[in-house]
């Protein structure tokens, strides 16, 4: 029997992997992928709560989250393209012009 807590543990693990990826990885593409992982872990948690509480609001919320996350990553990829054209790099450590 799969309970609510199985889903929550899965979403928690994915969230932790996502946050670690954003903070630790150096490649901008992987950072953006990790952000997707963070958003999708939230989706799992919302959908699981929605199912076990018998309430529709959570499923509606998931649709909004997916849409907004797509918009956010689209802007992220556009910025990545600009970064690559200007600096010929996809690594985070090359973006440190303003640290005095």
């Amino acid at each position: 029997m799969i309970t609510l807590y199985h889903y929550l543990v899965l979403s928690c693990i994915l969230f932790a992997i996502g946050v670690a990826g954003v903070l630790l990885r150096r490649n901008i593409l992987i950072v953006l992928m990790s952000l997707e992982l963070v958003f999708n872990s939230v989706n799992i948690s919302l959908a699981a709560f929605s199912h076990f509480l018998q309430s529709m609001a959570g499923k509606v919320f998931v649709v909004f989250t997916i849409t907004v996350a797509a918009a956010e990553v689209a802007v992220g990829l556009a910025i990545l393209v600009v970064i690559f054209r200007q600096k010929k790099t996809v690594y985070v450590e090359d973006l440190s012009e303003m640290r005095h």
Partner: peptide
């Protein structure tokens, strides 16, 4: 963008 999206998460 990166910090903002992480905070949104």
């Amino acid at each position: 963008l990166v910090t903002g999206a992480l905070a949104s998460g």
